[in-house]
């Protein structure tokens, strides 16, 4: 079925058809989940976060300004919920020695070379993201995965544009550092 746009379904919900909200959820759940997952690094927690975020969005639909983009508004809720969730729990400190070398050895698991390469890179990225603080994880996710502009990221996160640039720079440096170390370790592991 063709998606008729967020505004249409929001109007339907406000007119009393709450089932229309499922179209909005289906449309945005994966991107919202990805953002929450990259910030908190745990799928169970990410699911809880987006459940909570979609509920908050539903309760506040009446005050949503139709001129604004629904996805930006929703991402702002997901981002803020994820950040506060991560800040309330005790941060797990990872060391490079904890890097699961076996887990990235995907060869022989029925995947093509390209697929196993992709899985391997994804495992390193998830590991590297946990080395960043929650703000940096959010900014990196919105910039690379959601392909948002600096202005859009500023709108979602409430961080100034210049601060976003600084955080992106720092986060890139940290990720590169982890990638280089992990690749070296992986080479040693496979030798």
């Amino acid at each position: 079925m063709e998606y008729k746009g967020d505004r249409y379904y929001i109007e339907q919900v406000l007119a009393g058809n709450s089932n229309s909200y499922s179209y909005i959820v289906d449309r945005h759940k994966n991107r919202a989940f990805n953002l929450a997952f990259r910030i908190c690094g745990n799928s169970e927690e990410a699911e809880e976060i987006i459940q909570d975020s979609f509920l908050k969005a539903y309760r506040s639909l009446g005050s949503f300004k139709m001129k604004a983009g629904f996805s930006t508004w929703l991402y702002r809720i997901v981002y803020n919920t994820s950040i506060s969730q991560v800040r309330t729990r005790k941060e797990r400190v990872l060391s490079l020695e904890e890097f699961p070398a076996e887990a990235v050895d995907f060869a022989g698991s029925g995947l093509t070379d390209e697929e196993s390469d992709s899985e391997y890179r994804n495992a390193i990225v998830n590991f590297a993201l946990q080395k960043l603080n929650e703000d940096e994880r959010g900014v990196i996710t919105l910039f690379y995965y959601e392909e948002m502009s600096i202005e859009e990221i500023a709108e979602v996160t409430g961080i100034t544009k210049s601060n976003i640039k600084v955080r992106l720079f720092r986060a890139r440096r940290k990720i590169q550092d982890v990638i280089e170390k992990a690749e070296k370790k992986n080479l040693i592991y496979h030798e």
């Binding site: 990805n34 990259r38 799928s43 992709s118 994804n122 990225v125 990196i140 690379y144 990720i175």
Partner: peptide
Amino acid sequence: YLKAERIE
């Protein structure tokens, strides 16, 4: 490494 198409 950070490919946009790799969405969880």
